[in-house]
């Protein structure tokens, strides 16, 4: 049984200008100890998917229209607030993109580090502080004993992200959701943080959902990758298949448009047009308007995510029909 099984999640935002279908029928599962990467461009619904699981979608305007998310017999989308609180921050932890805005600037990091422990475990302050110190050491902060009482502004961006990781992992969660944790960091610091996440994951055996727009970051870190476009999953496969045998036209186009996968000199491949407006209902495939291989049928029929081989699913009608 997977650790987390999401089925047909739909999160829509009811705004004055219409119903914005940010996540529209997403199903996936995460096994214990597995690293799942979710890639997509801005607005593809990758963050909203995870926010929905954590109960962080502001309601209203957001509303979870349908779906279940079974985390060990508990449906995260329909459980009581008390049940959700018992899981959130304890068994599922989350780290965010910008460590400056996700740490409270008024509180010493010691206070912020021990907060999850004081909430979730019956532990004394003193013992909690010892655990916090241990956690800071584990994420590689030198002089942890001295720095634990510092304020967030006294740390650099990379150090703040380490503090965030220490805080997320202090309760030994079974699942860590990392929402673009290295996007705001420099490459050399990003390399440090990725190594750290990899090491701690092996050490604690936790599952990780890693959200990013950077295919490079995914390739070394994740066991499995799913590509999202316009609120739906268009392709999901183990990392090697996704990079070496991408099937869906969007995944292929995405790979062809990044400079790192192109020979120098010639023009980059570009995906024409813009992502669709999600406030309008989309008959058919969301990518059809930008797809070079789209036919009349693609604009009419909504594709389903179907397996092309074991462990590799994709949602393109023409690939499914064996036409491309």
């Amino acid at each position: 049984m997977p650790l987390l099984a999401v089925n047909d999640l739909r999160t829509w935002f009811h705004t004055r200008s219409g119903v914005y279908r940010a996540v529209d029928g997403v199903s996936f599962a995460v096994d214990r100890g597995e690293t799942l990467g979710i890639v997509g461009e801005s607005g593809s619904g990758k963050s909203v998917t995870c926010y929905s699981l954590m109960g962080l979608v502001p309601q209203p305007p957001g509303r979870i229209e349908s779906g279940t998310a079974m985390f060990d017999d508990i449906d995260l989308l329909h459980c009581t607030p008390a049940e959700a609180r018992a899981i959130r921050g304890k068994r599922i932890a989350m780290i965010f993109q910008d460590p400056m805005t996700s740490l409270n600037p008024y509180l010493r990091i010691s206070e912020q580090l021990i907060e999850p422990l004081l909430i979730h475990e019956s532990i004394t302050r003193r013992a909690a502080l010892d655990r916090a110190l241990e956690a800071l050491n584990a994420v590689g902060i030198n002089d942890a004993a001295k720095r634990i009482h510092a304020y967030p502004h006294e740390f650099s961006g990379g150090m703040r992200q380490r503090v965030m990781i220490a805080m997320a992992l202090i309760t030994r969660p079974e699942l860590l959701i990392a929402d673009e944790p290295t996007t705001a960091l420099d490459v050399t610091v990003q390399a440090q943080i990725l190594e750290l996440i990899k090491r701690l994951q092996q050490q604690y055996g936790m599952a990780v959902i890693f959200i990013t727009h950077d295919l490079g970051v995914i390739s070394g870190l994740c066991d499995r990758v799913q590509v999202m476009y316009a609120g739906r999953i268009v392709e999901t496969a183990d990392t090697r298949s996704l990079f070496y045998q991408p099937r869906h036209p969007y995944t292929r186009a995405l790979q062809r448009s990044i400079p790192a996968m192109q020979p120098k000199g010639g023009d980059l491949y570009t995906i024409p047009g813009l992502p669709p407006d999600l406030s309008k209902p989309l008959p058919g495939c969301a990518f059809a308007d930008r797809c070079e291989q789209a036919t009349e049928r693609c604009r009419r029929e909504t594709p389903q995510l179907l397996p092309v081989q074991a462990g590799h699913e994709q949602a393109c009608l023409r690939v499914q029909a064996g036409e491309i």
């Binding site: 490459v187 050399t188 995914i218 990079f243 990044i258």
Partner: peptide
């Protein structure tokens, strides 16, 4: 060396 490349075999 810090740049992650979109190539799982190289990356590993």
């Amino acid at each position: 060396s810090a740049i992650p490349t979109p190539n799982p075999d190289v990356e590993r």
